[in-house]
Design a protein around this nucleic acid. Structure first.
Lengths: 198, 198
DNA sequence: GAATTATGTTGACGGCAGCAACATCGGATT
DNA sequence: AATCCGATGTTGCTGCCGTCAACATAATTC
């Protein structure tokens, strides 16, 4: 057995991890559309068909990156909310962490939300919903349990929209140059929403 | 002369428009990654190289779709704000129209914000900024001129994030089934932001 | 130590983007 | 009206890609 526990594997070392890393670098370089399995294999120093021993196809590799990303995002969100009691403060902290994550791991983020995966992969979907549920819990404390889902959507929408606009190059570059700058803009935007309403 | 005025053109009729239409349909079918110029040519009933008489390459076709989309979006936004005087009402109306547009023309919207275009195409970029400036004007009336840009970003972020999450299949399907349902959710989300803050 | 399984390689096939050489059509020139 | 010429469309090619099948080799298990 030990099918999946391939720690320090056979020929290469850990080709699966190397391929994931290569793919992320490749996406950062040439964008998602410029990603090719063959180039990943080249970067990892193996032949062009070797990846198929670790991923059923190209989509499977992308799904693995998405899962990794959702896992990192959940962790970042939890860490940001840790120690905060006020629900509104927790939601803001999550939103800021969300944007910071997107700018720090843009390749992962793009793959997570690219809608380019043919089959609605259940694993990636579940990972996304797990990250989302973090929001809904705190939203319930703000908006009441009956409209928690709606409030969760509302508080997901702002950081997600901001992150997408940033990764799409739609924001002034100085706001996306560093994770800190991006987080600062996220805080400002959330502040606007707090102030302009009544 | 009359290089660009190809009204009722030569052999095909209007291959350029037919290709754009075919591409939009193709994206709706198989997603952006599944788009191929050759398949568009097949749909239009021409040979695989004919598209190159109308578009320099695949990216150029996508840019044309993006421009078309930004033009439609601007028009929809202007129409939605028409007759409204209260700036906050104008911003809400724009946001709702934004989401409605995304659900009505998902292929266009995906291409507009796909970040898969290699060169930062200046035409598409200008078209996007024109649509954005519609927001900033009304935002200035809400937040004051000095922070109009920030307020514009804030009011862009919500509909954009919601639209992206919808097109990515991250919202319950009943909210994205029809443009009306999507617009209703957008209105609700904007309402949450009006109520939960202080 | 032998059998088995996991991992990697080579070579092939079909599809796509893009280019070049050729063919044809339609309007403009004379 | 005959001609020319540019705009449009076709055929065929090259190189890259995703994927599969057949083969080779290395690690694990018995």
């Amino acid at each position: 057995m030990a099918r999946k526990a391939k720690r320090k594997a056979y020929h290469h070392g850990d080709l699966r991890a190397a391929l994931l890393e290569a793919a992320v670098a490749e996406i950062a370089d040439k964008g998602l559309h410029g990603l090719s399995l063959r180039e990943c294999a080249r970067r990892a120093g193996v032949s062009h068909a070797a990846p198929y021993r670790h991923f059923a196809d190209k989509d499977a590799l992308l799904v693995a990156i998405a899962e990794e990303g959702f896992s990192m995002l959940s962790q970042a969100g939890r860490a940001a909310m840790e120690g905060l009691d006020d629900p509104r403060a927790r939601l803001d902290a999550y939103g800021i962490a969300y944007v910071r994550f997107a700018v720090t791991y843009p390749s992962h983020f793009r793959v997570m939300f690219t809608s380019e995966l043919d089959d609605p992969d259940p694993l990636a979907r579940a990972a996304g919903e797990r990250a989302f549920s973090l929001l809904v819990d705190s939203a319930a404390a703000v908006a009441g349990p009956e409209s928690a889902e709606l409030a969760g959507v509302a508080f997901w929408t702002v950081p997600h929209g901001l992150a997408m606009l940033m990764l799409d190059g739609r924001m002034p570059p100085e706001h996306t140059a560093t994770p800190e700058a991006a987080a600062a803009l996220a805080a400002q935007v959330l502040g606007v929403w707090r102030e302009t309403s009544r």
